[in-house]
Design a protein around this nucleic acid. Sequence first.
DNA 1: GCCAACGTTGGC
DNA 2: GCCAACGTTGGC
Length: 136
Amino acid sequence: MATRHWLVKQEPTAYSWGDLVRDGRTTWDGVRNHQARNNLQAMQQGDRVLFYHSVKDPAVVGICEVVRTAYPDPTAGDPGWVAVDLKPVRALARPVTLAAIKAEPALRDIPLVRQSRLSVMPLEKAAFDRIVKQGT
DNA sequence: GCCAACGTTGGC
DNA sequence: GCCAACGTTGGC
């Protein structure tokens, strides 16, 4: 099974990479956008997920992994919304800023740039690897 | 603080 | 079903 690649966004003031490392694992809930929900639903066990801080110093800061696939979001009244569980794998040595991503021609078409409001998005392996490499 | 993008709501 | 108004997200 091919491991697939994703990116999730969070405002660090709400839940940061540091919080995820401290917790060791978290429930990725509260998603209330259909496109983002569909992406959560498509995640498979072991998929790699980039963790992106939005708003304040926007940047990709770490890599995490799907440890539980989609199940009904406990924070939603409507069972149509889903959550997944994520655990941290490792921090990037250097955060890869949104500005750096936008400056990279090979990354100009990723959803992070194209669809700034989407909070859960797929990444092609090449784009994922390139961001990770920039963070090395 | 401002603005653009986009989703939702509600009047017709 | 259309569209204007409004709210939210997120970059700058």
